[in-house]
């Protein structure tokens, strides 16, 4: 039991450090999509809801599974979709300056 705990704790601490390292390199231009993307990542709690579903065996267990599933799914689907929507705008091909210049000058 202790071995599992310390294994998991080590993973937790190292993941925190990796997170700090990776996130602090992200420019402020992308902070909103990054936060939204991180938001989507914590939607992984949907996996927790799956585990709950597999062992639910009482009415209260079913209700909790339903609640966890609904909330987590909203988180994970919504998070990824809205982040993609934002980032899609950032990668849109740039408008050629010459073409727009002609149009505006005329």
């Amino acid at each position: 039991m202790m071995q599992t705990l310390f294994g998991n704790l080590a993973i937790f601490v190292l993941a925190l450090l990796v997170g700090v390292e990776v996130i602090s390199k992200i420019p402020s231009t992308l902070h909103t999509p990054m936060m939204s993307g991180a938001n989507a990542i914590h939607g992984v709690v949907v996996a927790g809801a799956v585990v709950t579903a597999s062992f639910a065996n009482s009415p209260i267990g079913y209700v909790l599974t339903f609640v966890a599933g609904a909330l987590a799914a909203a988180n994970v689907f919504g998070g990824y979709v809205v982040t993609d929507r934002m980032l899609k705008m950032f990668t849109r091909p740039m408008t050629a300056p010459t073409a727009s210049a002609k149009k505006d000058a005329s």
């Binding site: 949907v46 809801a49 799956v50 585990v51 709950t52 579903a53 597999s54 062992f55 639910a56 065996n57 267990g61 079913y62 209700v63 599974t65 339903f66 609640v67 966890a68 599933g69 609904a70 909330l71 987590a72 799914a73 909203a74 988180n75 994970v76 689907f77 919504g78 998070g79 990824y80 979709v81 809205v82 929507r85």
Partner: peptide, 30 residues
């Protein structure tokens, strides 16, 4: 989870219905 715990139809049903509702809500809002 299916291999390890198995679970009941009710449990999986609750997950699927809840997940579908939440997923649609989240994607629509997004």
């Amino acid at each position: 989870s299916i291999v390890d715990g198995g679970g009941t139809w009710l449990g999986w049903g609750a997950l699927v219905v809840g997940g579908a509702l939440g997923g649609v809500y989240g994607a629509l809002r997004a």
